[in-house]
Simulated scan of single mutants.
Amino acid sequence: MKIYKTKDYDAMSRKAADIISAQIIMKPNCVLGLATGSTPVGAYRQLVEWYNQGVLDFSEVTTVNLDEYKGLPRDNDQSYYYFMNEHLFKKVNIDKSRTFLPDGMEADSETACRTYNEIIHATGGVDLQLLGLGHNGHIGFNEPDTSYAKETHCVTLSERTIQANMRFFASEQDVPRQAYTMGIKTIMSARSILVVVSGEDKAEIVKTAFFGPVTPQVPASILQFHSNVTLVADEGALSQCPALFHSAK
């Protein structure tokens, strides 16, 4: 695992965008696995800026997102489709027909998961998978468990994740209780993985996930077994970790 330490969130975002843009430039028809949440917003903002400067071309890129809430229509401003459209897709020249997320409005979980697995397999595999890191070690919506889920599956969200997501909704009752998410096997099948983490409140889980034992109770810990993982985190997030990282501006 390669670890880059940045001064703050903005520097973290720029370094992450550097890595994503390099993937696009090296392989214009690459498959990007994308993530939502507050952490990658800065990286998406930087990618849009470089696109506007003529540095990046998204016209051949295919994307597959990690997850989507079950029961939220795409036009709901808290759906991940809406998030991706607002922060990236509508601001660059990406072909919308090659941007994929699980179908949150498919009520039958088996159908939704099977369909999304087929979509991911049809892309030929993810070249670069972007991940955030939850306070309990979840990646995507793969929550702490006794075993690792393999492919796309329906998850009942933990109370901690529901509480963390409350800030995006009018009330706790509005927070979805289930989501469709890529499984650990799918994530680990990506050719390369980029993890972005910011803030001292994530310091303990960063240490646990990347320097502790590998266990499904800390889903992100499985990334220790991947051959090509890059962690980009700011000073706060790395404050409890051994000094085994590169400095990045």
Score class of each variant (00 low, 15 high):
2 K>I: 14
7 K>E: 14
8 D>N: 15
13 S>C: 11
14 R>L: 13
14 R>G: 00
22 A>P: 00
25 I>Q: 12
25 I>E: 10
27 K>Y: 01
32 L>H: 08
38 S>E: 13
41 V>S: 05
43 A>Q: 02
45 R>C: 02
46 Q>F: 01
46 Q>W: 00
47 L>T: 04
48 V>W: 03
49 E>Q: 13
52 N>T: 03
53 Q>L: 14
55 V>S: 06
58 F>A: 04
61 V>D: 07
72 L>G: 10
81 Y>Q: 11
85 N>Q: 13
95 D>E: 12
97 S>M: 09
98 R>K: 15
99 T>Q: 07
100 F>D: 03
101 L>I: 11
102 P>D: 01
104 G>R: 08
106 E>N: 12
108 D>W: 01
113 C>F: 05
114 R>W: 00
115 T>S: 12
116 Y>A: 03
119 I>E: 06
123 T>W: 09
124 G>H: 04
125 G>V: 10
126 V>R: 01
127 D>H: 09
129 Q>W: 05
129 Q>M: 14
135 H>G: 15
136 N>V: 08
138 H>R: 07
141 F>K: 04
146 T>H: 11
147 S>P: 00
149 A>R: 12
150 K>Q: 13
154 C>G: 01
160 R>T: 14
164 A>H: 06
165 N>F: 05
166 M>R: 13
167 R>A: 05
172 E>P: 00
175 V>F: 10
178 Q>N: 12
179 A>T: 10
180 Y>M: 08
181 T>Q: 06
183 G>Q: 05
183 G>L: 09
184 I>H: 01
185 K>V: 02
187 I>V: 15
188 M>G: 02
188 M>Y: 01
191 R>G: 00
193 I>W: 05
195 V>F: 06
199 G>K: 04
200 E>H: 09
204 E>M: 06
207 K>A: 12
212 G>M: 08
215 T>W: 03
217 Q>P: 00
219 P>H: 05
223 L>Q: 05
224 Q>G: 05
226 H>S: 12
227 S>K: 13
227 S>Q: 13
231 L>G: 04
232 V>M: 08
236 G>N: 04
236 G>E: 08
242 P>R: 11
243 A>G: 00
243 A>I: 08
245 F>Q: 03
247 S>T: 11
248 A>K: 04
